[in-house]
Design a protein around this nucleic acid. Structure first.
Lengths: 215, 215, 215, 215
DNA sequence: GATGAATGAGTATTCATTCAT
DNA sequence: TATGAATGAATACTCATTCAT
């Protein structure tokens, strides 16, 4: 093979993937380095050759997902002008719903534990190049909305960023509910109220209608 | 006395309140029984006189908040027909935003750790009276929407529950972002993208418009 | 029995004694909390109910020995004027030699590891009453020497503290050598030079003579 | 070339020097091979190309210092008959104080941890030529004393070795105290008793007087 | 009911040592 | 010789839970 030396990043990458798996399985706090190492097929000590501590590992996992989500959403902007706005929203719901699932799960760990959130934020601040702003999903969707506004397919008087937040919120909140399918009010044997139904027809109608130009 | 549930013992109630405080401060996984007991001003062992274990305590805390949230939202239904729909949505955003803050934080713990979610769900199943469905915030808002539909102030063709989910999602997702104010992309020293801005004018416009009867 | 409730200090005291034993056996750095707990006959976690950490435990052990040594030496002052000065020095050598053996061993751990020394010093500073100076062995011996000087049995022109330091040094250094009986230069199978012989006749002669009034 | 032992490899020598530095900084037990390698500017694995294990490295460091100390003291014997005995003792105090500082620090590690002492002793036994006795500092000073005794400048009835031990003890014990400057009883902010003052005038007087011929 | 000392299984992290390159 | 990634046993410390008083 011409592909160079056996990928040095193998171990590091394997650890990131294993860690994601275990963080999703148990949350950050209850994920053990032992299980992560076993899942990655390496010794426990190996983790510390690649990451300063469990927090650093979490940070890397978090970044890798952020990159992935943003990359997907970046491509979304190109849809402006194609199909109907409603169709594009539908696609977006699927996209955000799927992509954010894992990311949101990690964010839940941060949400639950402010100290973790603070720790990760500090790391991000240190490692980011001065003045760099990682674009979030809202920013990406906002760009799409602005593009549609220029094409006259979305009302020009709504704030693109705010509109994007609304749009992204729906699958986001729905994702949390899905994750909490074990919620006391949403379990098989237990009668289930229709909390946070997966966004479907009406949700799209409402948003599409709310966004479309008047007249 | 005309009303309300029989008063809990002071100790039991103090423990529930202390536990909420500590769960919010550190998340379920990192909240220690020691800190809870100290906050409540009792000995650690006392916890186990009132709750089988830490999970049971969490369950009680969770229930107490659910009751509180639902009670507030129940009153919301009475607003149907008063003011404008847009004004009511604005009030709802504030209401849900404030009320869900603590509840969502607990839900984040469950979201992060499926085992916790499962455990709490199991308890709910065991303790709930057969066939009883605790109404969630979506259900409460859905009732309001249905009432407005009957009054012709909201389009009759949207599904009330789904519409309620959309409406509730916005402050919900915004709340998560606020909680994650330490998020790498949303901190003071670190340049901040406009992810999940607190829902304001445009968000309301979109939803109000999307909901209002055509013609 | 009238002796009150079963001594609450039992566990704490047992831990201090066990810790001394283990610290002497392996030095601070290699003494494990596990072995200390086993030696004391308690669970490992129990250590942390009584001491903040391993350092705090070491500190307590150190203090307990210091107290013991000083108490013994305090009584020494009363010997001024009794027997001969030389006899008293002989007694002192035995006393200091025996008492310091364990204390010196702990001090060796501190000597070897400056961080440990710093840590213990910080603790001492925090816990000591403002302005309190724990009398060391040198101070105690110095008092004896001053008493003898007033009685005219020791030359008045030597500095009592310095003289005390010289006197205390001899059994002290000898004690270190004894502890290092495994020293490469002081082992059975290996020919032994007469390094630091236990202080005997001549050492006493030198000091007694050096201290006695001229004329 | 006229002199010296055959030069060690640069790497080996660098490791010994780096190890001394790190052993002095943290004590044997807490000195890490990682820090030693970094200080020497080599990879961690390289240590094991030159030394069987950490103990062997310590042994080499210890030997190198012993050699250095003894060489310095050997030259001391030549002072017999020159200057006054008191002046020579003063020089000796400075010499021993300086030289022993590092050696004593290593000995403290051995004193603290008998297993280390045993291990090093075993190595010494194996590596030393049959019947060879490395002269210690006491032996060297004893030779000086014997020489002075022959010159009639030191009382003939004291045992030279014992006298040497007394003399060497003083700066030795003082050195330990200096090393323990963080000792609870000897820190700046904390009131300090005059434990183990650096040997000065009176100490010299006592010893000089105790050693000088009567009459 | 209330206490709080005791428990001991569990966890993140360290570090001397090995070995394929 | 030199490297440095990988190892895995070892360790200090935590914390939910128990139980004698």
């Amino acid at each position: 093979m011409s592909s160079g030396p056996p990928r040095k990043t193998g171990t590091r990458q394997a650890l990131i993937e294993a860690a994601l798996e275990v963080f999703l399985r148990h949350g950050f706090a209850r994920a053990t380095t032992r299980e992560i190492a076993q899942t990655a097929g390496v010794a426990e000590g190996t983790i510390y050759r690649h990451f300063a501590d469990k927090y650093a590992l979490f940070h890397e996992v978090f970044l890798s997902l952020t990159v992935e989500v943003v990359a997907e959403l970046d491509r979304f902007r190109e849809r402006a002008g194609k199909g109907t706005v409603r169709d594009n929203l539908e696609t977006l719901f699927a996209l955000v719903g799927g992509l954010q699932e894992r990311l949101s799960s990690l964010m839940a760990s941060m949400w639950a534990d402010p100290e973790l959130a603070r720790n990760i934020a500090a790391r991000a601040r240190e490692s980011a190049p001065e003045g760099f702003v990682p674009p979030g999903p809202v920013a990406a969707v906002a760009e799409y909305i602005r593009a549609e506004q220029e094409l006259g397919r979305i009302r020009p008087d709504v704030d693109a960023t705010e509109a994007a937040a609304v749009v992204v919120s729906v699958p986001f909140a729905a994702g949390m509910e899905r994750a909490l399918s074990t919620h006391p009010t949403a379990t098989g044997e237990f009668p289930v109220p229709d909390d946070f139904p997966p966004p479907a027809g009406s949700a799209l109608d409402i948003l599409a209608r709310g966004l479309e130009p008047s007249g």
